[in-house]
Nucleic acid binder design. Structure first.
Length: 805
DNA sequence: GTTGCCAAGTTTTTT
DNA sequence: ACTTGGCAAC
């Protein structure tokens, strides 16, 4: 970069309040750069300043590509960069053409542009998990396999795993050895055939097909490489092989670094660096190997661990200073993560002093654990910490239930961060299926979903006949519908119903051309008309009237909300900013495709729906404690954090432990634990229960090995589980987290009943037992240790318990 | 075409 | 224990 003379004041503003290493990471604009950003080290700040700095140095914004994994991350990054550069608008030269997006969104756009070389039609539909499993079921059926031997879920998992490794159906078949994988290979082939036939892709295909296009098509590669001169990838530790290939190929070169060049003849010299790029491409990756927790989804931690080998000219900058947590919390995290072997060690330090030692408590069972956590949170609240600044983390969603109950009976406001996405609701999915059928006439899955929703006299029998016809004629379902008169097996009542349905679709699309006087003029019109004229809206209105239930009324609201989100999308849609529709100067003319504007808009809308999970669902709640999985916690921070369920089989999860020497997965579990710890700013509580009821069966547990890895000097462990094994003992235990002053203690009786801890009771089925714990509230529960059958937790209302003594 | 019952499967889930 | 999906009967 060329900057002589005076320091520009705006540049100065960009660099101020950055630490030395942060500043280096911003200033090192050229060549490959690995930024190892520890938790809480100001990573986002560095990335956004870096982008702003590049632009400030005169790099045209359209030459910059920043890739993230989530829409949320991309949105935040975009917003911060825009605000640094004077806002975003079409006129703002400073940001025009800048691409900050997710891998999947980038791929979707590239594939629209390069549909033909990628073997697709540009109006392809993106199938979500539900659609995928519908297709998978069909494929399993077509292969004449039983879905009980080949559950779609696990078949899809196998297919996805293969795709992450860039293995296609043929490649998978070639390496399949045993009966099981050979059959999966058959399903894989059929699945792929059905997907292409429906002109549909799944999430993995977005990556796979893009990677393949970049690999195999020199024009595509050249165009991307010449457009994007500065590439930045966030959370690089989470990239899978396909993403690695995409990023590497966009970054530069015609072949891939390291891995894909192997095996090499042992005597061949290392490839010469390209003369135009003495140090390598301007490829900056940011991440933290210690926070790689998506290996099970195909993320390959080697990508970041081996980045320096892939790019020998690479510079590495480590951001180790933590601005989030107190020293004792950091020390704890550091002690834990040092037990991992496969990592790059980096110092974790803070210049802050003071802070409380994290606490661990061994509890009796989950009810006890819930009470302890509730008391702890209450104590924190009394110390002036707002509810919204506290969180409870757990390994699996199943653990949330007990915590919910504990929060409810302690009257602590809470919200559970699990995305029940807007677009997953049945009514919205139905409306979207209409839109997809309109946008992609080959989308048989969507069409079959709506052909009789609401009922219009085209039942299962008719649909089957049409599907058979379609596959015999090797056409789409829609073509079969158009051809209904020649389908002999179709009933006399069904035929006119089908014709009417086809006429309705045509009235929205102008017969597919999206032209004509009767075709809706705007996307909002289109969505609104479809929702109404399809009868979908009326169907839910009617349902709401008859059932009177609130959830049915909500469905109508959701449909209306879909219309307004279409409106919103239309207002914000900026075709000039669409990388796919607007190739840079010099783009290969064969690769440019004309599209009717309304169809382009509809496609873009559908794409945003497919690629945008529920945006607001993950937002930290206002005014309430957040309950979430450890995975969901990544990237967030809270003043006070409670991590529960640190037991063998739970946090390291049983699935990660079982395989012989499956140490790789165990390290991921440890990283998960590390992620949890490093979310805490000031206070951390870790709990482990001696007994945990799982699927209705109480099990004795063992404390997590991770607890054993944390010495007393960095973690205050207190055993409150008492002599729980002892039938006589068990009742007079300390029930507080040490240092939590309030006299809150375990309830020992349920008001208004004879039941209290210690009561001997008889159950009609389970026989004689003793109450060992009580949870009061509207559905009061008692934990009863039965003489013969072990411990069970019963709802007093329903369990027919009689008092013996 | 709709409702209701039984059976099966339950780690995590950025897109 | 609990949800969900497939199938059978009305």
């Amino acid at each position: 970069m060329h900057h002589g003379g005076d320091i520009d004041p705006r540049m100065e503003a960009l660099l101020k309040d950055l630490t030395g290493t942060q500043r280096e990471a911003v200033l090192q604009t050229e060549g490959p750069l690995l930024v190892l950003a520890a938790a809480g080290s100001g990573k986002t700040r560095v990335i956004t300043r870096r982008i702003a700095y590049l632009i400030h140095c005169g790099v045209p914004p359209w030459q910059i590509l920043a890739l993230t994994f989530t829409n949320k991350a991309a949105g935040e990054m975009r917003e911060r960069v825009y605000s640094m550069l004077g806002g975003h608008s079409e006129e703002n030269r400073a940001t025009r053409g800048l691409t900050i997006t997710t891998f999947h969104a980038l791929c979707a756009r590239l594939l629209r542009r390069y549909a033909v070389p990628a073997g697709l039609k540009p109006d392809f539909t993106i199938y979500d998990t539900d659609d995928q499993s519908a297709v998978c079921k069909k494929a399993i059926e077509a292969c004449q396999l039983s879905s009980s031997n080949f559950p779609p879920r696990s078949v899809l998992a196998a297919i996805s795993k293969a795709k992450n490794e860039l293995l296609d159906a043929e490649g998978y078949a070639a390496q399949a050895r045993e009966w099981n994988s050979k059959n999966i290979a058959r399903v894989f082939k059929e699945y792929t055939r059905l997907m292409r036939h429906a002109n549909a892709v799944d999430f993995d295909d977005l990556l796979v097909l893009t990677a393949r296009a970049l690999k195999d098509n020199a024009d595509v590669r050249a165009e991307c490489q010449s457009r994007w001169r500065y590439l930045l990838v966030d959370e690089y530790q989470d990239t899978n092989h396909a993403q690695f290939v995409i990023a590497s190929l966009i970054a530069g070169g015609t072949s891939l670094p390291a891995r894909d060049q192997l095996p090499q003849p042992p005597d061949s010299p290392p490839p010469e660096p390209e003369p135009s790029a003495p140090r390598g491409p301007n490829f900056c990756v940011v991440g933290d190997p210690d926070q790689s927790i998506y290996g099970w989804r195909g993320a390959d931690i080697s990508n970041i661990l081996e980045f320096e080998d892939h790019y020998p000219g690479c510079r590495t900058i480590t951001l180790g200073e933590n601005f989030r947590s107190t020293a004792p919390i950091l020390a704890l995290a550091d002690t834990l993560i040092r037990h991992n072997k496969r990592r790059k060690h980096k110092p974790l330090f803070t210049s802050r002093t003071g802070g409380d030692k994290p606490q661990a408590v061994l509890c009796r069972e989950e009810g006890h654990e819930g009470l302890l956590v509730a008391d702890w949170l209450k104590a924190r609240h009394e110390h002036g910490v707002a509810w919204r600044d506290m969180a409870i983390f757990y390994r699996t969603n199943a653990l949330s239930r007990v915590m919910e109950e504990a929060m409810r009976s302690a009257a602590i406001p809470y919200t559970i961060a699990r995305g029940t996405a807007f677009y997953d609701r049945e009514e919205v999915r139905n409306a979207v299926a209409y839109l997809r059928s309109v946008a992609n006439p080959a989308d048989d899955i969507s069409l079959s979903r709506i052909v009789n929703t609401p009922s219009r006299g085209i039942g299962k029998t008719s649909l089957d006949a049409l599907e058979v016809h379609a596959s015999r004629e090797e056409t789409t379902l829609l073509e079969a519908l158009r051809d209904a008169s020649s389908v002999a097996t179709l009933g006399p009542r069904a035929a006119p119903a089908v014709a009417k349905f086809v006429a309705m679709l045509d009235s929205w699309t102008g017969g597919g051309s999206f032209m004509g006087a009767l075709v809706p003029g705007t996307l909002t019109d289109l969505v609104d008309r479809i929702v109404r004229e399809s009868g979908l809206r009326d169907m839910y209105v009617k349902q709401a009237k008859t059932s009177g239930s609130e959830s049915d009324a909500e469905r109508v609201d959701n449909l209306d909300e879909l219309v307004s989100s279409a409106h919103q999308f239309e207002l914000e849609y900026d075709p000039t900013a669409d990388a796919a529709l607007n190739p840079p100067p010099g783009a290969h003319p064969d690769l440019v495709i004309e599209t009717p504007p309304l169809l382009a808009l509809l496609r873009a809308f559908l794409e945003s729906i497919a690629l945008v999970a529920d945006a607001d669902a993950v937002d930290p709640a206002q005014g309430s404690v957040t309950l979430m999985t450890l995975h969901a916690a990544k990237g967030l921070e809270f003043d006070s954090v409670a991590m529960i369920g640190l037991e063998e089989g739970m946090l390291p999860h049983a699935r990660a432990v079982e395989g012989l020497g499956g140490d790789g997965d165990l390290e991921e579990e440890r990283r998960l634990c590390f992620v949890g710890i490093t979310r805490a700013m000031r206070r951390l509580l870790i709990t482990s229960a001696k007994y945990r009821t799982h699927r209705g069966i109480p099990n004795r547990t063992m404390p997590s090995r991770f607890l054993a890895e944390l010495p007393e000097q960095s973690l205050a462990i207190s055993d409150q589980s008492g002599d729980f094994d002892d039938f006589e003992g068990g009742t007079s235990l300390p029930t507080r987290v040490p240092g939590v002053p309030s006299g809150l203690s375990l309830p020992t009786r349920v008001p208004g009943t004879p039941f209290q801890v210690g009561t001997l009771v008889r159950h009609p089925q389970f026989g004689l037992g003793e109450i060992t714990a009580i949870t009061p509230g509207s559905h009061a529960r008692a934990t009863v240790k039965f003489k013969d059958l072990g411990t069970k937790t019963l709802v007093l209302e329903y369990a027919r318990l009689t008092v013996v003594r």
